[in-house]
Design a protein around this nucleic acid. Sequence first.
DNA 1: ATGGTAGTTTGACTA
Length: 255
Amino acid sequence: MRIATWNVNSIRARLPRLQEWLGARQPDVLCVQETKCTDDEFPEQEVREMGYEVAFHGQKTYNGVALLSKHPISNVIRGFPGDGEEARFISGRIRDVQIASVYVINGETVGSEKYARKLEWLKKLRDHLNKTCAADVPWMLAGDFNITFDDRDVYDPAKWHERIFCTTRERDALKAIVDLGCRDALRKYHHRNGIYTWFDFRTGGYQRGQGLRIDHVLVSTPLFKALRDVEVDLAERGAEKPSDHAPVIATLALD
DNA sequence: ATGGTAGTTTGACTA
């Protein structure tokens, strides 16, 4: 089973790219972030026509998350207590794995009100996972965490030292989630620096090779041994009218 | 140096 995550930066603006990408890559599951539409505006028909079941949790203009799956989705959870009523979390059970699509608050700048909210939100997410992740059900978190794990995920660590996405407090909050009992899937296979999932439009980051790895697939410990491969689809980031994020695809060997 | 682009929405916000 192949599970992907992709911050599409508006599912309506990205629909042509999404259709082409799903057709070409055919993942079993796609966790989507930044759909940027209310549930009644979600292009549900178009997604179903690609052969996918869908569960979404959206709002006007900002945020919005969804699960696309070739297999049935059950036990759907939209949001969690203390999430600030923003549409940033949805999870569902697919082939006996509870899979979440997560869009962590950006945080703007260190010390801002949004930065404080980001850290609070991450605590609430941890609380939610601690309560809902049953020991006997394998689980995964996939999404845009807006946090780098370490300086290998940063194109210029000196420039980004203790800046947003790279602060010790953000990284500790991410580690606290990992400590619930999961692992960073990509690092099972790839240990080098320079693997990025996001490139800033404004600075022409992609063309300059200046990116960050802030999109992650976290796999619960019992499921980690079933992991077979993880890849970042950089070609998609280089396409016409791309999102600013590249998709990440994880392959699992389930029974 | 506080820029630069993109999306939503049509002025200003979020990223």
